[in-house]
């Protein structure tokens, strides 16, 4: 009998601990978000930190974003083009590719790229600073780490993600146009006529709003994981992996629910 309760304990106690840790992290992240938003009031005095972050996010993501966008545009046009051809509807490729990019593929693909390219770098950088006591050093210099480190990254992610998404949408649609012309003999003019006819402002706007929220999620998760890293340099790698996984999951879950909400 005694043995049995012990076994149960061994299962439930760590589980309970994990759950508590999880809810504590969520709470801390929400607080961090509030703090970051509040510090935005001094953004103009801190442009020296915000602008380089924005530049870095743009410059670091642009090559991989271009490559991804163009190939996704190609493939999307190829796959749907073959199906549409059976019904002689190739000229609708413009609508399908551009709406697909604007509503889902643009925001989600960009978020994935930014998580891998920027989120991981943010966590690694801040975690390294945590374990080498640089965060403590900032505090003793009366520098608030949320203002100095988190707010600039938060703002940069929230503003740059939508901008990247516009770019990715555009490049993807161009890629679709190239395939439509090369394989399905749809002239550029017809393709873009079709785009402008079916793609609505609402499709674009919803995608951009979504991507701004992805920016919030990625920056806050990445900064939080970095700031809460303790121990030695070995912990930095672990923190980075955890941060990337958590960002992915959060983005997917949020994306699913918001899409469902908007479809209703």
């Amino acid at each position: 009998m005694k043995k049995k309760t012990k076994k149960v304990d061994r299962f439930f106690v760590p589980l309970g601990q994990k759950l508590l840790d999880f809810f504590q992290s969520v709470g801390e992240m929400l607080l961090l978000l509030v703090e970051a938003v509040v510090w935005c009031k001094v953004v103009f005095r801190n442009l020296d930190k915000v602008l380089p972050q924005m530049g870095k996010i743009g410059a670091d993501s642009l090559p991989i974003a271009s490559l991804t966008a163009i190939f996704v545009g190609f493939v999307l046009a190829l796959q749907t083009g073959v199906a549409l051809q059976q019904f002689g509807q190739e000229e609708d490729l413009g609508a399908i590719v551009s709406i697909g990019m604007a509503r889902e593929l643009g925001p989600v693909l960009t978020a994935i790229l930014v998580i891998g390219r920027i989120g991981a770098a943010i966590t690694a950088e801040i975690a390294t600073m945590s374990v080498s006591e640089e965060i403590d050093a900032l505090k003793t210099l009366s520098i608030n780490p949320v203002r100095y480190l988190v707010m600039p990254r938060f703002l940069a992610c929230v503003t740059m993600l939508p901008i990247l998404v516009i770019y990715v949408d555009f490049i993807g649609t161009l890629g679709g146009a190239a395939v439509a012309k090369a394989y399905f003999k749809v002239p550029f003019l017809a393709y873009f006529d079709n785009v402008t006819e079916y793609l609505t402002f609402e499709d674009m706007a919803k995608g951009l709003v979504k991507s701004a929220v992805f920016g919030v999620i990625i920056s806050i998760v990445s900064c939080h994981k970095g700031l809460t890293t303790t121990g030695g340099p070995g912990e930095v790698g672990l923190a980075t992996t955890n941060s990337v996984v958590l960002s992915f999951v959060s983005v997917y879950v949020f994306n699913y629910f918001v899409t469902r909400l908007w479809l209703e």
Partner: peptide, 14 residues
């Protein structure tokens, strides 16, 4: 904190 300064074990330079 403003009355303090601290020199950390590993220097902690940025």
């Amino acid at each position: 904190r403003r009355r303090f300064a601290m020199v950390f074990q590993g220097s902690a330079l940025l």
